[in-house]
Design a protein around this nucleic acid. Sequence first.
DNA 1: ACCTGAACACCGTTCAAGT
DNA 2: ACCTGAACACCGTTCAAGT
Lengths: 222, 222
Amino acid sequence: MATRARRPERRQEPLSRERIVGAAVELLDTVGEGGLTFRALAERLTTGPGAIYWHVTGKAELLAAATEAVMATTVPPDDADATPQEAIRALALGVFDAIDAHPWVGAQLARASWQPPMLGVFERVGRQVQALGVPDRSQFTVASTLVNYVLGVAGQNAVVGETLQPDTDRTEFLGAVADAWAGLDAAAYPFTRAVAAQMRDHDDRAEFLAGIELILAGITAR
Amino acid sequence: MATRARRPERRQEPLSRERIVGAAVELLDTVGEGGLTFRALAERLTTGPGAIYWHVTGKAELLAAATEAVMATTVPPDDADATPQEAIRALALGVFDAIDAHPWVGAQLARASWQPPMLGVFERVGRQVQALGVPDRSQFTVASTLVNYVLGVAGQNAVVGETLQPDTDRTEFLGAVADAWAGLDAAAYPFTRAVAAQMRDHDDRAEFLAGIELILAGITAR
DNA sequence: ACCTGAACACCGTTCAAGT
DNA sequence: ACCTGAACACCGTTCAAGT
């Protein structure tokens, strides 16, 4: 039919920054950071690599935009009724959930810690540190410690995410780590061997939160 | 003279893993992680890129070996007379000094945290955590928190080191960060603006240690 | 056993040329 | 204004060929 030929199920939405970033997130989630390529991305968008550069300055901006998109939908805003401790916990867990769902976000946050998403986290953590009554002179140190801890976990998550096949089971992976640790030389690694068992059934998220709790305890103890 | 021609000031020491790793460290220190290239390395060793592969399996192993070399000479062994707290401080500062002198080490430690150098740090931290009397169930969490904090700082140091021109002055850089922060939107970033001044004359190493101290306080407070 | 260096299969990015 | 895709200047890695 002629009508059909004239309107062929929307051949191609026009390229836009939004569509590019969305496709980048999908690519990053499915094939990892190593799989995000201008050629692969162009193919997915049925265009040439050069077209992408009209909307985005380069790979760095693309990764930054993809990270911002994920962070905006995953990290919750402040709850006015929360205590400072609760607010810090909620914020940290929000970041954790983002990097847990998208390991490549962890690497990017660590890489661009002075850019909007992570700078915003620093700002929000800092305000709660103020609310906690930490003296002015120590506020920077305390906020930095919390953020550095979060960034450390973020980086580790990214490593695991990149190492892991996208389809590998998490408990299977933890089991493999536990086995490797249990097989270490007893004389050189007594501690690591001893905690290997705990590695097997351990909850990343709870473990992460326990670290936040430990730092919060240090703040109160000051 | 004939004697001179026969012994031309040692034309070329034979290639060896040791020489390769040494040249890699030099290259990493002078031109950064982006400058470590098999071609550049081969040129420095006056050979072809293929020759390096006879002694080293690939770039990953090369970076690991370079990191191990630096860590071995910079991180001090345990002092039997030290208290657990002192031992943790000394160890953490040892890692800090390594990444401070060689920012690329920070990135590599974060990337290969389960390999010898960082696994050894985890083991040693863990033993001190045991000595501190932390109950079995919490030892893994506490050691992980300390190590994750160290890795977070390591990653940040690597970012700064990569961003910084090798000849830029550190105080100059800190001043630039402070200026940038002071120029942020007052409504959106009150905290960051407030601490910008502290950024200007701040001691990375002391700041890092203060974070360790904060976590140690949290352990004692438990 | 060890080294050489051309070649392969990729990258990110640019840019003349098109619409 | 926006898109195309060939081309450029790189990578890490391999491998036949040499010594």
